[in-house]
Every structure is written in structure tokens, then in C-alpha cells.
Nucleic acid binder design. Sequence first.
RNA 1: GCGACUAUAGUUCAACGGUAGAACGACGGUUUGUGGUACCGCUAACGAGGGUUCGAUUCCCUCUAGUCGCCCCA
Length: 466
Amino acid sequence: MPKTIEEEKKGSGEVKIKRNRNKMFQTVRGMRDILPKEQPYWQRLRKAVEKIATDYNYDRIDMPVLESREMFERGTGKTTDIVEKEMFKFKTKGGDDVCLRPEGTPSAVRAYLQHGMQSQQKPVKMFYYGPMYRYDRPQEGRYREFFQFGFEAIGEQDAILDAQLIQLASRVFQAIGLKNISLQLNSIGCKDCRPKYNKLLVSYLNNRKAALCMDCKKRLKKNPLRILDCKEEKCMQVVFQAPQTVDHLCDSCKSHFTMLLECLDEIDIPYAINPRLVRGLDYYSKTVFEFFPESNEDETQGALGGGGRYDYLVENLGGPETPGVGFACGMDRIVLEMMKQNTKTYQEPVAKVYLVQLGDLAKKKSLRIFDELERSGVMVAESFGKKNLKSQLRLADKRGVSIVLILGQREALDETIILKDMISGSQEVVTFKKIVDEVKKRLKKSADIAAKKTKQEQEVNKLIKK
RNA sequence: GCGACUAUAGUUCAACGGUAGAACGACGGUUUGUGGUACCGCUAACGAGGGUUCGAUUCCCUCUAGUCGCCCCA
């Protein structure tokens, strides 16, 4: 009956406590732990994002997870699925209507306005990463708490920024070793040409209303553009022949889009124009784009990231007329894709030295030795809680260290320590004073040997390739 | 929010209407202060709550969670 806490006395007198499973907790729905095993991938991704952000002159900004609910209703759009049914929203004790942010862009724009960044040189370039929250049905690659990194450039309407942003994104994918990422893009016009196009689309669709799914019938009134994006077979057939946004752009939108395409050609970034790509957020205008892993052929699911231009968002959130472009990527999905593609992960430095102690005096002294080594930059592993030499050496071996320092009662009294080379098995006695230098010397030696080896291997590989 | 499937040691999997086995892992040991292999031992589970039944982990229902499809997106 492991359901209650029982204390059982064993023959040895040891007291064993059985745990109570009923009192154990697990993550709430849609939340997850990112375990140490997965961390190297995250680490590599974060490093890549930071590096490229620096290269492209984007400054880091962190925004709060909790924001005003109305901000997303006005920014992202009240009729979008994200705001309409996927927000974690609640009232605070003080009565404020707040929500957990479902995405980052409105927050970035809010920060831009709140801190008077209008007065900075434009465009203002910022990047961020952090958790986002959407109350959706969880499944693989879709969690209620997920991480996004995003880049926003506010205050410039030139299409070259759109192109540079896409270039930046593909540099990130490249830097983390992801292959076969495809880019889809489209232009959905501005406040001049979109209403005209909308009318055209509505009148086209109205004639074929019967063939549309229930959702699309609603969308016809609320947000006809989204019908283009519907995955229902019957809707897709109707949409197939529908007028396309790119054919009905005004002159300025047309030249903006052309410029973007020319820029992309110039920097050799392959793309596919998808006339059905509209994105599910209301603030987009002109350019919209999404990235897909090519393994995901149907494209209906698993976009790694996306973005576009939002020339009216700043205004909508109470600021002056200011254009902007941005994109965001789902880090959970990227990590998943990295693991699928088996990309090399960031190598955490590993301790090469293991400190073994025997007896009370040695135990106390070993704390000091550890500290001295750590201060001089040597990574040391230990198992201070263990007592006998055998089990400590076994653990040292499992760790794969090259040097073990053994500090026993005798050595502690003489202020010496045994230095054991784990590869040859040989050992010698070194005084406390000399130990740091001696360890460093040996580590350097083995590092040099390792470096030589990899160099040789690389040369051999080169020859083989030739 | 809808539909389908699943739920057994830390992990991956078994079996069974009469309360469960293995592998790997973790921990410990193979004589007192010397690692890797091997051998041995130990650890630990029927997701939660109801019902049917003499008896359920097994059958039924509800809940919870996960996976997949829809939807949506990242």
C-alpha cells in the first residue's frame, strides 16, 4: 500500500520512507519541463540568435509576460483566433484586465511608444526571446507555453528591410545547422488597395457561398482574407480560382513587393510566392512570409516562424503613423527540428578533473582544493557525499575525466595529494602548493594532443574528399 | 473547441478476471585506500475516481494527461 507515508524499519535499523504518490504533482496541461538533455540545443539556438542580432545591429529587449488584454485586442486583432479564443486572460486583484502575452510584436511596439523611442534614429531595431502563451489543444510541437524569438524593425518602410529581415532569419537557420528550410511569401496590400481587393474577393465568394465551410461563411463578414488560408477541401477548391492579392496591389505596394523580390534574388534566397498566405494576425500589411521545414510537406502544420510588415500597428496602439516589419520563430519547434535533423549541439565544457576524498579531514580540505582549482579556471567534478574510494573512482571513470586527485587522511596531514592519470593509470604525489599548476600543465598537454589529432583528422578528411 | 487512440518501475517494453516480469538506469557489494569488464544484491509501477464481480491492473463509465487528425498557429 504505497498510498500512505509509511516508515518501515529495516533490519539494519535504516528508516525508509515510502512516498505518497497522491501528493505528487505534474506540470499543468500544455506546460512542460525542458530537461537538461534538451538544453544543449536551446543553448546553441540562443547563442546563434544573439550573435546574429549583434551582427545586424538589433538590441535586446525583454518585455513582461503579463500585459494589458486590450493591447492584444487592438494590436493583434479582436477577431483573430489567437485573441478570440486562445488567450490566457484574467482580472488582477486590483481589477485590471490582463493576459499572458500570446505573441511579442504588440509588446515591442508598446515598449517603443512607452519609452519614447520615436525620438531615436530610425529604424529602431530590437530583438527578444521568451515564453508566449496560447490556450490551445496541446500536441507535439504545440504547447500552451512556448518560446519565441523575434526581431522587430520599427520606423522604416523600405522593402530592403523586409529583405534583410528574411536574410537574418535564414542566417539563424544556417547558424544552427538547419537544412531545407523553405520560405513562402506574399503581399496582402495596404489600406488603399486591400479594401478594393476585399470587395472583389467578397463578391467572388458570395456567388459561391454554398460551397464554403461554416467557418468561412462567418469569415466572409468578419475577415474575408482568411478564407484564402482555409484548409477545408471544399474551400480550397473555391479559393483556387479566386482573385489573388498580388494581382490587385496598388502601384506603391506593387513596387514595394517587386523590390523585395529583387532584393531576395540578389542575396540568393530562394522563395515561393504563395498567394494564399495571409497570416492569422490583423496588423499585417504588404509583406507576409513564413518558414517551413521541408520535411513537413503538407505545410498545413508546423510553421517554424513567420512575420511581415505592420505599417499601421504603431498607430493602432496610439502612436504616430509609423511603419514596421518583424518576424518571430517558435523555438520549441526549431529545437524539435534540430533534434530530428540531428544537428550538432553546443558542446558544454566538461570537467576533466575529479576530486576524491577519504576521511573527515580530507573531506574538509577537499572543499578548499576544489575552490582553488575552480578559481584558477579548472573545472572539477566530485562526489563529496560518497565515502569509499572504489565508488568514487568508478564515478570518476563514468565521467570520463583524465585526471583524478585523491586526498586521503595521510595526504591531508602532509598537505599533499595524489594525482592519478586515468589513461595510463600512473600516479604521483604532489604538494598542495603545486597542485594547481601541475593539473593545469597536464590539462594543457592533453588538450594540445587532442587539438593535433583533430587537425590531422581534418586533413585526412580533406584528402579523402579530394 | 471537436473527433480518434493511449496510460504498467526513473526509461523502454511484457503478462494476466485471482494484485505483476524483463532489459536498461540508479544505488550498493565482490575483505579493510585505487576505476573501466564481469558476477551478485537492492531499488521501483498497474494515472485518479466510480461501477460490474466473490475478486479487477485486466471489463464498463467519468476525470486527468499524452499522442494523432480537425481547427489554429509558433
